[in-house]
């Protein structure tokens, strides 16, 4: 049995999930969907920065263009922190392609012109 807080709306229902993935405590169906996803395959979008060689900036904000499996977040951080890019960069430019073969790219979230 697992307990978790639903984050879909501000009510924040206290969800209880049994071993057969039956959800209780949810006030609406969205809570059950969330709990199942969260317990079977939790994912998170990663946002962080990479070093950039530029006249203006020292770090470039980036994100994973799709959510990453939660357990890969720290490995992704380690790889991103070893990476560095050069200006010019545009929003959406791929900084790391297909990270760990997960079909997720790390992309720039800011324009840095020079």
């Amino acid at each position: 049995m697992k307990e978790l807080t639903c984050i879909i709306c501000p009510r924040g229902c206290h969800l209880v999930v049994d071993d057969e993935l039956n959800v209780s405590g949810n006030t609406c169906p969205r809570g059950a969907v969330y709990a199942k996803q969260e317990l079977t395959h939790p994912t998170r979008t990663l946002t962080t920065t990479v070093r950039i060689v530029s006249e203006k900036e020292v770090s470039l904000p980036v994100k994973s263009d799709k959510p990453l499996p939660k357990e890969k977040i720290f490995d992704a951080m380690a790889l991103i922190n070893k990476t560095s890019v050069k200006a010019p960069i545009k929003i959406g430019d791929v900084v790391i392609k297909n990270i760990f073969g997960l079909d997720v790219n790390i992309v720039a979230t800011k324009d840095v012109s020079r």
């Binding site: 979008t45 946002t47 904000p61 994100k63 929003i91 979230t109 800011k110 324009d111």
Partner: peptide, 10 residues
């Protein structure tokens, strides 16, 4: 859609 702060402001 869900944007980061820099994307939103841009």
């Amino acid at each position: 859609e869900e944007l980061t702060g820099p994307e939103f402001m841009t």
